[in-house]
Each structure stands twice: as C-alpha cells, then as structure tokens.
C-alpha cells in the first residue's frame, strides 16, 4: 500500500474519532482515499492481495458508511454498503471479523425498514449467519415485528433504545413511516376521532402539527367540535365481468371440440 495512502488513512481515523468529528474533512479524506484504493486495486478486491491491506480498505469503507449516515446521505450509505458486502461475504474466511460489521448490517436493515422494503429486509436478514443474540440485529428485527403486527407504540418507545448512535439518524424517517401507517389504519378503522386522541395516536405533541398532517391526508377537521372525521370510501360495486366470462366459455368450447 502506497505511503501517502497510509498517511491519509491515519488522518482519516483521527478526524473520525475526534469529538465532535469534522464531517466535512472526513468527506474530503474519504474521496481521496477511495481514489487511492482504486489505484492500489483494493476497492474491489482482486485475488492475491495482502489481507492486511484488505482490512484497512474495509475499515475505510466502514468509516465511509458511518460518515454517510451522519451526513444523512442515504444513497451514499447504500454504495458503501454494497462495496462492503464483498468484504463481509466473500472474504469472510480470509479476514478477521470487523467489530463494525454488525452495526453496519443492522443499519442497513433499518434503512430497508424505513424505506418500507420489507421483502429486501427479509432477504437480507435471512443471509445473516447469527441473529437474535446480537443487539445490532435484534433491534431492527424487533422493529420489523412490531411494525408488522401493528404495535406502533412499541416502535415509538424503542426509538431511544438504539444500540448505536447512528441508529438514531433513522428514527425520524422511521417515525414518518409509522405515522403514515397509523394514519391509513385510522382512515379505515374509525368514523371519526377526537382531535386530542388523534394526536396521541399519531404521537403528535401539539395540535397545529396534527392539523397540518390531517390536511395533508385530506381529513376533515372540525376544530370547534374537536373532531376529525374521515371521508368514507364508497363501497366498490361488484360487477360481473361479462366479457371475460364469455371469452372463457368460448375457449372451453373450443378446447372441448378438440378433445372430442
């Protein structure tokens, strides 16, 4: 590994560890390091590379992943994570396990959850070797379970129990997700709802917030009566699909003709 890359790497570690870390500088360093990694053939590992160098390359990418979350740049996190997957999956036997592996995997799970990509969430989860006993993985797993069964209040309460600092960056978007979920449940499950209760159900602290949200969803808010009423969706009319039935019957007739 080239010496200037080593120096940059040391620099990156120090900047990243210092409290509070200088996000801008980390970003600049990361960009330089990535170029360096490509030149050294480490960004996408080639066979026959020194494992020690790979560990360092992995660490740089891990820092990149954390940095993306701190700067709230989700697509960038996505990229870093895809690059890391090679290190985590294919080089599992070659490299010592990284202490940051599970936090990052957990973060990826939460990301999938907040984007409501449940199928991807499960596919990813299935490919993880060890599960429930790892706090970083258990947290998103619990969140998913609660979301699926509808225990939204548990999700709300769990937002403070995140196992790593970075998990909290996802809390806001997660809350947005569950608020929308709850809202769509309320639309169908209730005829009307007192403003005060609606606020508690949706975890709003103040009425204006609720009113703004209600307007966005197109609810009728009766401020004087303190009641939200939900517009009824008209019952769908059941229509007999005539054409489809005729076509089906004709095709049966044709097939029967062929058989007999």
């Amino acid at each position: 590994m080239a010496s200037n890359l080593g120096a940059l790497y040391q620099d990156l570690i120090q900047t990243f560890r210092s409290q509070p870390s200088d996000l801008k500088k980390v970003g600049v360093l990361l960009a330089q390091l990535k170029v360096g990694l490509i030149q050294a053939g480490l960004l996408i590992p080639q066979p026959g590379v020194n494992p020690q160098d790979l560990v360092i390359a992995r660490e740089i990418l891990e820092i990149g992943a954390f940095w993306s979350i701190r700067t709230k740049d989700i697509p960038s996190f996505d990229r870093y994570f895809s690059q890391l997957q090679t290190f985590y999956n294919d080089y599992r036997g070659l490299l010592p396990e990284s202490p940051r592996e599970y936090p990052i995997r957990g973060l990826n799970l939460i990301r999938l959850l907040t984007q409501n990509r449940i199928a991807d969430f499960h596919t990813t989860l299935e490919s993880l070797p060890l599960r429930a006993d790892n706090p970083f993985i258990a947290h998103p797993m619990n969140l998913e379970r609660w979301l699926m069964e509808g225990s939204y209040s548990k999700v709300w309460n769990a937002r403070e129990e995140a196992p790593a600092e970075e998990y909290k960056f996802f809390v806001d978007s997660l809350m947005g997700t569950i608020r929308n979920e709850i809202a769509s449940c309320e639309e169908t499950a209730y005829d009307s709802l007192p403003l005060k209760d609606a606020a508690t159900l949706l975890f709003f602290k103040s009425q204006p917030e609720l009113v703004a949200f209600a307007q966005k969803r197109g609810w009728q808010v009766d401020l004087t009566g303190g009641i939200i009423s939900f517009a009824k969706k008209g019952e769908e009319k059941i229509e007999i699909p005539k054409e489809k039935l005729i076509a089906a019957n004709l095709s049966y007739a044709r097939e029967l003709e062929q058989i007999v």
Partner: peptide
C-alpha cells in the same frame, strides 16, 4: 397496542369493523 393492532387488521381487510375510540 390492541387499538393499533385492531386498526391494522381492519385496514388489511382481515376483519370488517370499526373502532369507537
């Protein structure tokens, strides 16, 4: 929890019903 869960069940079409809060 029960209220949320029932609400979700109604939305998902598992049951037909209403919640009277």
């Amino acid at each position: 929890d029960a209220e949320y869960i029932v609400g979700k069940a109604i939305r998902d079409g598992v049951i037909e019903g209403r919640i009277v809060h």
